[in-house]
Design a protein around this nucleic acid. Sequence first.
RNA 1: UGCCUGAUGGUGUAACGGUAGCACAACUGUUUUUGGUGCAGUUUGUCUUGGUUCGAAUCCAGGUCAGGCAACCA
Length: 552
Amino acid sequence: MSEEKSLNFIEEIISQDLASGKYENILTRFPPEPNGYLHIGHAKSICLNFGLAKRFGGATNLRFDDTNPTKEETEYVDSIKADVKWLGFEWVKECYASDYFDQLYEFAVQLIEKGLAYVDDSTAEQIALQKGTPTVPGTGNEYRDRTVAENLSLFAAMKEGKYNDGEKVLRAKIDLASPNMHMRDPLLYRIKKAHHHRTGDAWCIYPMYDFAHGQSDSIEKITHSICTLEFIPHRALYDWCIEQLAIFPSKQYEFARLNMNYTVMSKRKLLQLVTEGHVSSWDDPRMPTISGMRRRGYTPESIRDFCDRIGIAKRENIIDFSLLEFCVREHLNKIAQRRMVVSNPVKLVITNYDKGEEMLSSENNPEDPTGGVRDVPFSNTLWIERSDFMEEPTKKYFRLGPDLMVRLKSAYIIKCDSFEKDAAGNIETIFASYFPESKSGSDTSGLHVKGTLHWVSAKHAIPVVLNEYDRLFSVEDVAGAEGDFKEYINPNSLTTDTNAWGEPALLNDTQDTRFQFLRKGYFYQDTKSTKEKLVFNRTVTLKDAWAKEQKK
RNA sequence: UGCCUGAUGGUGUAACGGUAGCACAACUGUUUUUGGUGCAGUUUGUCUUGGUUCGAAUCCAGGUCAGGCAACCA
């Protein structure tokens, strides 16, 4: 299949580089900063980088871009590794920009020696001012003319810790009038007397992104360094550093990052949702994080399929959330175990059933002929969904109502004879009679019904809790909406249903079984679920044509 | 009044000078013991104006629109 698919622009470049003999093998990298959990946008980048290597017979490094000690933590490093593995990818080397600090320092010294870098004593504000604006060239200052010897000793003193944060920076000496703002003597090193999660207190100066990323690529001999569109202006600097240092010429290519409607993708906003308690944690099933999707029941296969379908291009995009849901249903439909769970139940008594109880058999997955069957206990007192009964049925209602017939899934066809209400006027019990010859699998009744209901035997049913999730935000374009994005959080993004009953087979299933609760949706046991208290997260609903009909 | 990107149905993404295709969404029909699934089908598109060419989504020029760039973040 994927061989037939046409090449995206990056695959095009790679196949040319391979055909021309520029490279024998390609090496890509996935370079997250360990300052948060990975989200679906990272999944796109992961699938791209690892996928490219897989497709063209190369390899991929996992590199932590840990050059800002104040934001980064080991907790994030661990979660990132777990998420990449869970998605199904293996890196050939685990790297850290912080492992290159010595080398990077040497690179900086080389630049100083070539007269291409200088120590600047200006404040951040002064530097910003001196950089000019996109339409006005920047101006230099007296520090720009320091001698090589002076710069060398000042930079060494910076490293020694003789200055405080913000007192001095190392800058490249390029072109203060460049139309590209990033080339107007960019900062290379800043002083940060902060504890680093890996190097501890060994360093008090840290390289900026622009003086770490390209060099790290080069040190690892990355052939194709793929990043998102906002780094396009950085490419000139990326190339400049590599050229001045005369090191391995890694090349940077940019693609459009993933945007999705009804959610947010920025780490800053995701962090805010967690710290301010709008969601329970980074792996809250409503979060677009890999860990959240995993807990919700998404499969790695479906996420990879999604990343495949959205494609790689340079055009800005906003992908429909429903495409992700499509991919999840597509996979789950093939693998999920079918079970019956009834929520908001109403009692159904089958008045002419005098066998007491019997075991019926039901297929585990109609999509999978090898999926087998399971036993489901049947008796004269069942629970069915309250919404499957209508006292005064409308025309297109295929479910139960006075004098209406339906099939009970894997059991019998029944006919509603009467019903009783409680004092408050709610339906309390439905009375029906069944047709013994309509038994599932050996139906000789000749009866035809339009509706099939799921059910559980009241005395065999086990209580379950259902977490039903909806979109986290109620507007499509969350980032573009006016005001604080948190105002648009969907108040109904989580509904917990504690009045639900499942068939006993659920007790025999393992924690990581993927389920389809018939006519309700796909479900997956929550991390906090136990045999004593089963808790299921709804991964995604089934398509529901009746719900659509009702809206009309 | 700078520089850099980009512009193809509702949403994405192909077509590399030669029939605008695919997926999702929507809608119709059909099958079905899940109003699920499957199957068949329908609807909807090349930002604009010129130019080159037998022929332009594609090449060229101008315009329009959208996004990005002036963190001691990555």
